[in-house]
Design a protein around this nucleic acid. Sequence first.
DNA 1: GGACGACCATCATGAAAAGCGATTGATTCT
DNA 2: AGAATCAATCGCTTTTCATGATGGTCGTCC
Lengths: 290, 290
Amino acid sequence: MYELRHLATLAAVADEGSFGRAASRLRYTQSSVSQQIAILEKTAGGPLFDRPGGPKPVRITPLGSVVLRHGRELLRRADEMRDGIERFRAGDSRIDIATFQTVSNTLLPQVIGALRDAHPGCDIRLFEEETDDPDLSGLDLMFFDGPGGDGIDDLKLLDDPYFLVARPGDFPQGPVALEWLDGLSLVAHPAICHQAVLEDFLEARDIRPQVVFRTEGNEALLAMVRAGLGAALMPRLAVLREDESLALHQLTPELPPREIFLLWQAGRTHSPLAAHAIELARSAAADLTD
Amino acid sequence: MYELRHLATLAAVADEGSFGRAASRLRYTQSSVSQQIAILEKTAGGPLFDRPGGPKPVRITPLGSVVLRHGRELLRRADEMRDGIERFRAGDSRIDIATFQTVSNTLLPQVIGALRDAHPGCDIRLFEEETDDPDLSGLDLMFFDGPGGDGIDDLKLLDDPYFLVARPGDFPQGPVALEWLDGLSLVAHPAICHQAVLEDFLEARDIRPQVVFRTEGNEALLAMVRAGLGAALMPRLAVLREDESLALHQLTPELPPREIFLLWQAGRTHSPLAAHAIELARSAAADLTD
DNA sequence: GGACGACCATCATGAAAAGCGATTGATTCT
DNA sequence: AGAATCAATCGCTTTTCATGATGGTCGTCC
């Protein structure tokens, strides 16, 4: 059976017009070139070159033209593959990352920025979704507020502690005892993901705040607090702009912090891009917890 | 260095999700598949599959996807090449033929018809040109009214004898002596190709007809004869419709007949199509000389 | 939990082939 | 005729390829 090597030889012979010159170009011997062409001629079922004999150049036959045309195309594709591999190794490929709101606003910008700097040609695709149940199909990486389950590897990036967010003056400065939350008017995220964990935790201690409004938007929640609709229990990182219009109170005892993980399919070999992204996420998380 | 075989194995492994199943599909052993993938992984510079171990299927890595995508493309092209060769052998290819007027009207229709019947998908291209100097570059075959020169092989198809074409009654029925042509008003082809040969032949015998009109078109010449502008010396085959408005007279002695040859580049291996065309032209010529 | 089965890597071995050098035969140019 | 050029071919060496056996890993089934 013929192989790419034979096609390369064919092309060289066609270029040089001579078996011998093709041989020296490819660092073969003339005899080897003869045999390679012979193999191609056997699989093609007829002569690929007319050999006039003597110093005249060999000339491609009509059948040879057919094989040569296809052969060159194959060689071109093989080159493209080499390029493709090289580009991939340079990180010039695609990465699909799922994320959620808080991460999009804090960790991710740093990660993406550094990634684009290091790999200018790369194609980064983000998918923002709030879900209880991480689905990594088609994704390289996923930020998630909990560890991965079966068939998923994870890396814990950081603990994001909960604070009570209220209007200045609504509570005395400093830590607030957890019991104060009982019966308190709160605005909150929908009861999925870590929000559910949180509410179960309070319930278990017989603390039942009154949730008067739920929305996914962090900014919307903070606006509600500013407007006096109620207080909010929010992870530190969700409060982007800390200004005089809001007061952050630690809680005693502390609520279980939201844990932020980076997930990927278990046992997966990462692309250079993904490997780099993991490293960047780890160090960005370390910066945030300073 | 990797070869097409390795890419085929890669694709099979990707399809089957298992080295062993790919091996049995390709009639290899599992060990051979392992080694082939190892070779590809070496040239790609990293693992192409994640091997979870145990009965879980292997999964392609991002790098593997790159190689696989290109690999499949290469294999597809290799298949196309096989098809191309097959189509070529079936005669379903292209043939370029140069011809001239008389041949276009007599021999060629039969040849082309039979060729298209035998090879329905073939691509026949005709180039009609009147020239003294056959140029076969880019052509498979050329009809010509003389033998081929240097670097050209030829096949003599037939002799086409010259007749004197006149209006009925202008000459007594039957052969006409050559001397009668001296001073006679003739219409004729331009003095190239065999026409030149013909006039030299007469000149050498001190016979000088008076050419009152020249044109390339056979039909135009015959129309001129009918109109009484003059007589014409024409090869038998150029007089397509023999009707009562024209009289054909043999000449005594005969003029050297126009010889019709089929030419091609010397030593060339023909495509099946060209080989067939040569055979058809030969037998069509034989039919005409009956 | 321990034996089993599915799976891939590795190693040694024998077979196939690829490549090489020398020679031959054909052709052209001088 | 002789020299030069070129491809085909032959015997040989080296490399590559494929194989079968063996060992390690992971999941599953009593």
